[in-house]
Design a binder for these strands. Structure first.
Length: 192
DNA sequence: GGAACGATCTGC
DNA sequence: CAGATCGTTCCC
């Protein structure tokens, strides 16, 4: 089980390695007395030299957090109705991040069910996990290492034998890059 | 000012 | 596989 006062995960190093390393870490959401947490089981890496990345064409108001220090949140609004959340990586000045695509609920499942309006599969998708944790653009730019309402905590590392690497999902550029990381055979992953 | 598009999800 | 639905970006 996650420790709400435990250490922050190691977010240093290249984006691909951070995306891999974030598997098994906990994303925690606190709203007043309510605490909700999920274990990260699916991620995707987005680098600055990557045509599929929002940072590829330089800084904009929306993507500004991507160019901040590792550990910031980058949350964007997509398709007129969904939010997706990233963990920013690399040194300040470099635009890169890791998209969180699925969580395994580990605390506050009932709250996630209410917040997401679902009974099952509350966080098995990038937009669904934002619903389950009530994350929206207001959180873009917060420091996930120190924020009181949304933060990361280290978890037991996931062994290599349990990690599957595949191309990223839902993009139209750089579709061949195997930059998606999934905990193998995990029921909460958005896809095998 | 306007148009095209999108790191999704659901339901047919 | 089409449709929802609107912020962001880019071009005029």
């Amino acid at each position: 089980m996650f420790d709400p006062a435990g250490p922050v995960p190691d977010l240093s190093g290249p984006t691909l390695r951070v995306a891999r390393r974030l598997l098994g870490a906990y994303l925690v959401r606190r709203e007043g007395d309510v605490l909700v947490a999920g274990r990260i089981v699916e991620t995707e890496a987005y680098r600055e030299d990557d045509p599929a990345s929002h940072s590829y064409r330089g800084r904009t108001e929306r993507t500004e957090p991507m160019f901040g220090p590792a550990g910031l949140a980058y949350v964007y609004f997509i398709y007129g109705m969904h939010h997706c959340m990233n963990v920013v990586t690399e040194a300040a000045g470099t635009g890169a991040a890791v998209l969180l695509r699925a969580l395994e609920p580990v605390h506050g499942l009932e709250t996630m069910q209410v917040w997401s309006g679902r009974q099952r599969g509350v966080a098995n998708g990038p937009a669904k996990l934002c619903q389950a944790l009530r994350i929206d653009r207001a959180f873009s730019g917060v420091d996930l290492r120190h924020d009181a309402r949304l933060y990361l905590r280290a978890g037991p590392p996931v062994p290599d034998a349990q990690v599957r690497v595949t191309p990223r999902i839902g993009i139209t550029k750089a579709i061949e890059q195997p930059w998606r990381f999934v905990v193998a055979d995990h029921p909460e992953a958005s896809r095998p």
